[in-house]
Amino acid sequence: MLDNLDLLTLAPVLNVQLLLDGLFIGGIFVLAAYGLALVWGVMNVKNLAQGEYVIMGGYFAWHLGTYGIHPILSLPLVFAIMFAFGWVVYLLVIKWVISRDLFTSLLATFGIALIVQQGLNLAYGPEVRTANSGFGTNVLFGGLVTIADIKIVSFGLCILLAASVIVFMKTSRMGQAIRATAQDARAAKIMGIDTERVYAFTYSLNAAICGAAGVLVSMIWVIQPFYGVPHSIRAFVIVTAAGLGNIPGVIVAGLGLGVAEQYSGFVLGAEFQQATALILLVLVLIWRQIQLAQHRQVVQ
């Protein structure tokens, strides 16, 4: 572990590599986390199938790739397919969950996650896949730092996607309806907003955002039917840390988590990489609880 820290001080440019890798990956985490914050905040559904939607999007991109469609071009298509899929899941399951107990949505979406995982496994087999973007790689600092072009492109797409969703939420009628429903569903209903439709739209939008994130994952990383769980956990870490409705917080936490994972993988060893997200999750929860306890004392 100390050797690894030494290595960082001896060759400081490695920090650049770790930081960039972390940020590029973190951008994708932000997308999935933003989707989660949306469904959690608007309809109080804790979607444990978040990571599975990501992987599902990735597989669709890979699948379209086998027909010769470039993964980037398949992005809008996957977005649309996942939106429709989200709508179907909403009608079949989520619709009945919204008004229910908090635990219900966790377990119900966990059930969905299992079905999606195994469905993908049956459809595409358990091999690890990666969609080929055919882009080159930039070499910096005499080969010590390499940045694949696709990572830069995917980061750009992340920003574009996130920005358009934010603009959509701010300006469009549906976006306004969603925000109104999040603030007070009853009042929104009284004002003539079809909250049913708002919920369906929100859930589908989340599935679509995750699917788009999945397309990026399939290009810059690897996908496999059972790789969804870490993505779900990350989304929960980020949203729990940032708090609902705090978009800048989600962005910072997402990018930060990406970087933290890279550094822990480097310094502590890759076997700690996944433990990092989990330990951060537990720490964030403890921290929140301390905050809460203080709040309670004030009330008392």
């Binding site: 219900t104 119900a108 966990f110 059930g111 996650a113 299992l114 079905i115 195994q118 049956l122």
Partner: peptide
């Protein structure tokens, strides 16, 4: 696993 997922969903939701 698909069956288990369905069982969970049906059990929890309905």
């Amino acid at each position: 696993w698909v069956a288990l997922g369905l069982l969970i969903v049906v059990n929890v939701v309905f």
